[in-house]
Design a protein around this nucleic acid. Structure first.
Lengths: 338, 338
DNA sequence: TTGTAAGCGTTATCAG
DNA sequence: CTGATAACGCTTACAA
C-alpha cells in the first residue's frame, strides 16, 4: 500500500509537502503540487481514511441506525426508499453511509457506543422502538443526530405528517358519506399515537361517534394480524362501512379476509391504506391511501444532519414535516349521493 | 472523549496493560482486568476504530457497491431484501456495512480507491453494469471481493440460477401446451444473456420454433418499456399465447397494455414474471413467476466474503448458485387438455 | 514555499 | 504478569 512517505521519497520532498499538495493547499507551489499529484497517480496512491480521521476527527460518514423487532425493516418499501434518499443526498456531499450494527467482536454494544466507535460524524435514527434505551442514550449524547418520525427534545427530527394524514383520510371518508369508520392501527409508537389522536380528534370535529369496538391494534406490516382484526370487525353486529389500515401491506391481510366473506371491496366494504407504496397503485382496485414521501424524508434527514455536522455552532434544531397526500383509488364507496 | 490513557491513569497501570485487558488478553491477571473493565465502564470509554484499524489493518466493515443508472436500485425489493440479508449476516459476525459512494470531498473516485480509502475488509459488488471500468478495476485488485449475479475470473460470485429459471419457465409453459412463447428480456447484462441463452436452448430442446419478432428488449424494472414491448407483441399478426417478462414490476407495464386490449390475463393471454417479489403474490390473478431467493443471496454473499477475509490463505474462490423455484400463479392458461 | 516534528488512539514487541 | 516504546499514516503548527 503506497503512502504519503513513498510519494515524498519519489519526489524528493518532505511528507508535509506531499500532504499539503494532495489537499490542494495553496501554500505549495503549483509546480510542486502538479509533480506530486502526477507521482501519486502513477504510484496508485490511495489515502487512508483511518489515519486521516484519527487526526482530523472527521470521518465523512453518516451512521444509520435501524432497529426493529422483525429484523426485516429494510425490506419495507417505506424504508428502502428512505434509505435510498439518504444515500443519494449523502453522496452528493461526499459522505458515506454506514449501517450501524450493535455487535462488534461478538459483544453487544449500545448503538451509541457503536456509532462513536465507528467515528460517524452524525447519525440518523430510523427506529420503530424509541423507548429502547439503546436508542435513547444515543440521542442524549453529543453526537449530531436526526430522528425520523419521532420527536426528541431539542433535537432535529424529520416527521411524516401523520396528523394531517389521518385528518385527511377521515375528512375524505366523511365527505363520501361514511359514518361508521373502523381504524386498525399499528403497535404503540409515537407515529401510532399521533395517528390515533388525529383520528379521534377529526371524528369528534365531524361529530362521528366511533365505538371502541371499531378500534383495533395490529402490528405494522404483518398482513396476518390485520387480517385477524378485519375478521373481528366483520363479525360485529353493526359492521363499519369502512376500514382504515395501518399500512398498505396490512391491507392485504384484510383483503384476504374480506374476500373470504365474499364482500366486494369498494362496494360492500370500503378500505383505506397508508404509505402509498408502489403496490397500492398497481393493485386492482387501486387502493385509496395516504402517500408518504419517504424519498424526501430520507433526503431531508441526510441534508439536515450534514448541515448540523458542518455548522455545529450555528445550527438550530428543527422539526421538518414532510407532507404527503391522499391517493384517491377505487376502494372507497360514495355512500351519499349529492 | 475518554481514551485508554485516561483509564491507565485512573487505574495506575500502563496503557499497554489497559489495551490488553480490554481485549481480554490472558497475559493480564484476572483481577487487574476486572478493575480496568470496571473503570472503563465508569468513565464511559468507547474504543476508537480509526486508531485500531490504523494499527491492525482490519476494519470489520464490508463495503457494498451498488451502481445503477437510475440511482434508485435500493428501492427494488430484489435489492433491498438482498441488502437486508447482507446486513443480518454481517452483523452476526460483527461487521458493519458501508454503502460505498464514489465521491469524496467533491472529487469522483473509482469505487476501488474508495473502498480502499475506507479501509473496508472486503467488498460486495451488486451492479447492473459490470462493464463499467470503475467496477472492473476493483475486481482486479487485491481486495477480497464477492460479486453478485456476475462471474469474474477466479473470483467468488453468488449467482441466482437464471439458467434453470428460464428452463423451468419454458418447460412449464410447454407442459401447459404453449408453443408461441414471447420473451421480453432486460437490457444486456450477464444475467440477461444467461436467461436468453437458456430460453433459446430450452425452446430448441422442446422443438419450439420462436420467431425473432417474439423476442423484445425492455429495461428492467421500468413498466413503461415492457408495456411498449407488449403492445408490439399484441399487434403481431400471429400473436404469442404467452409473454415472459423481465421481472415482476415490468409485468405491470404489460398488464396495463393487455387491459387496454380488453384481454383477460390467464385466459386470452398468459404471462410469466421473474423475481417473485411480494407483489406477485398479492396481485389478482396471482402471478406465475420464478422466485429468486434474494435474502439468501445476500446472506451467502456476506458469509463468503467474511470467510475470504478471515482465511485469506486457504480460501478458494467459488461460484455459489442459489436456486429459486416456480411460483404457479393463475396467469398461465392450460392450452392442452390432457 | 518547503521542511520538521508532534501527536491523533491504538496495538504489539520486547524487556523486566 | 506488567511496563515502556515504537509504530500505523496522516495533518498541522511552527520553523526555516
Amino acid at each position: 500500500m503506497v503512502k504519503i512517505k513513498d510519494i515524498a521519497e519519489a519526489c524528493q520532498v518532505s511528507i508535509g509537502t506531499v500532504s499539503k499538495a494532495l489537499n490542494r493547499s495553496h501554500e505549495i507551489s503549483e509546480e510542486t503540487t502538479r509533480k506530486i499529484i502526477k507521482k501519486a497517480n502513477e504510484l496508485g496512491y490511495v489515502a487512508n481514511s483511518n489515519a486521516r480521521s484519527l487526526k482530523t476527527k472527521r470521518s465523512y460518514s453518516l451512521g444509520i441506525i435501524y432497529f426493529d423487532s422483525t429484523n426485516s425493516g429494510l425490506e419495507h418499501e417505506y424504508f428502502s426508499v428512505m434509505l435510498n434518499g439518504i444515500k443519494k443526498e449523502a453522496e452528493e456531499s461526499g459522505y458515506d453511509v454506514v449501517l450501524i450494527s450493535n455487535k462488534i467482536g461478538g459483544l453487544k454494544n449500545s448503538y451509541l457506543s457503536h456509532a462513536k466507535y465507528r467515528g460517524c460524524d452524525g447519525v440518523i435514527i430510523v427506529s420503530a422502538d424509541f423507548k429502547n434505551p439503546k436508542i435513547t442514550t444515543l440521542v442524549e449524547s453529543d453526537l449530531p443526530t436526526v430522528t425520523i418520525d419521532h420527536l426528541f427534545h431539542n433535537r432535529t427530527s424529520i416527521l411524516s405528517d401523520n396528523v394531517k394524514g389521518l385528518e385527511t383520510i377521515v375528512e375524505y371518508l366523511h365527505d363520501k358519506g361514511h359514518k361508521k369508520i373502523a381504524f386498525i392501527h399499528g403497535e404503540d409508537t409515537e407515529v401510532t399515537r399521533n395517528r390515533l389522536a388525529s383520528f379521534y380528534r377529526t371524528c369528534q370535529k365531524l361529530k362521528l361517534d366511533i365505538p371502541d369496538s371499531y378500534i383495533k391494534e395490529a402490528q405494522y406490516h404483518i398482513p396476518k394480524y390485520s387480517g385477524l382484526a378485519t375478521r373481528e370487525l366483520l363479525a360485529l353486529e353493526d359492521r363499519p362501512t369502512c376500514i382504515i389500515y395501518p399500512d398498505d401491506y396490512s391491507y392485504l391481510g384484510g383483503l384476504t379476509e374480506i374476500e373470504k366473506h365474499k364482500l366486494k371491496i369498494g362496494e360492500d366494504i370500503s378500505v383505506v391504506g397508508y404509505d402509498g407504496i408502489y403496490l397500492s397503485r398497481v393493485l386492482r382496485p387501486v387502493l385509496t391511501t395516504y402517500v408518504q414521501d419517504s424519498n424526501k424524508i430520507g433526503m431531508m434527514a441526510a441534508r439536515k444532519l450534514i448541515e448540523m455536522i458542518e455548522n455545529p455552532k450555528t445550527y438550530i434544531p428543527e422539526q421538518v414535516v414532510i407532507s404527503g397526500y391522499l391517493q384517491q383509488g377505487k376502494t372507497v364507496k360514495t355512500l351519499n349521493s349529492l
